[in-house]
Amino acid sequence: MIDARDLTKRYGATLAVDRLSFTVRPGAVTGFLGPNGSGKSTTMRMVMGLDAPDGGQARIGGRPYQQARWPLREAGALLEARAFHPGRTGRSHLRALAAANAVPRSRVEEVLGMVGLESAADRRAGTYSLGMAQRLGIAAALIGDPAVLLFDEPVNGLDPEGVRWIRQLMRRLAAEGRTVFMSSHLISEMAQTADRLIVIGAGRLLADTTVAELSARAGGNLEDAFFALTADTAQYRAATEGGF
């Protein structure tokens, strides 16, 4: 379970995340939707303890991530496409992380198998395609067999096969009873993958609901419902819709 209470982050004069509160429950895929720059990544980074909030608190399994006993066994995150050294092999990257949390070495082989990277595991990660890099990032997130998983834009730049693979993986992880929190700006992807939705705009909570309920607001069209919801907060939409 992820619990955010009044989470706030300021960058200079800009309020990136504004008293954001929400709960992400286990056993479901919860989508995190919002226009670009709405604070999704910042929120996820605060949940993972990478960025310090200016106010409020985020908890994973009841306590801040920094206080986790074995952090990688509590939560795993894919926050950017490439969070590994290009000169290191995929296997070494995973072994280093496993060693940090006393995760047995056999788990490295297990997650390599889960993401289908066995044959490329001894190649330097800098030579990986985007899809392979994404798979290594997911393997890293899964290394501690955590109950909570965060994925920031996991399907970005993937080919249709990769997108489908990620979708099925998310569903499976949620079916195993894990908390799966996934951001995307692809509404159609959310419609197919997520059960619940947390929608934010300009750092504020706009909706915390189910996919079915939100689409019902616009006669079954999730995209229309999303645009109606975020109309006041999107920074760049006026130019693209009104212009040209």
């Binding site: 306590r63 206080q67 006993r69 050294h85 290191r88 070494s92 280093a96 060693a99 949390n101 006393a102």
Partner: peptide, 25 residues
């Protein structure tokens, strides 16, 4: 006991040792 982290300096050191020797540079 639950609040104390399970990982210690030796875990951090083991991670760094693997990272250090797994780079050709």
């Amino acid at each position: 006991a639950a609040e104390r982290p399970g990982y210690r300096l030796r875990h951090a050191a083991r991670m760094e040792w693997i990272k250090l020797r797994s780079l050709r540079s």
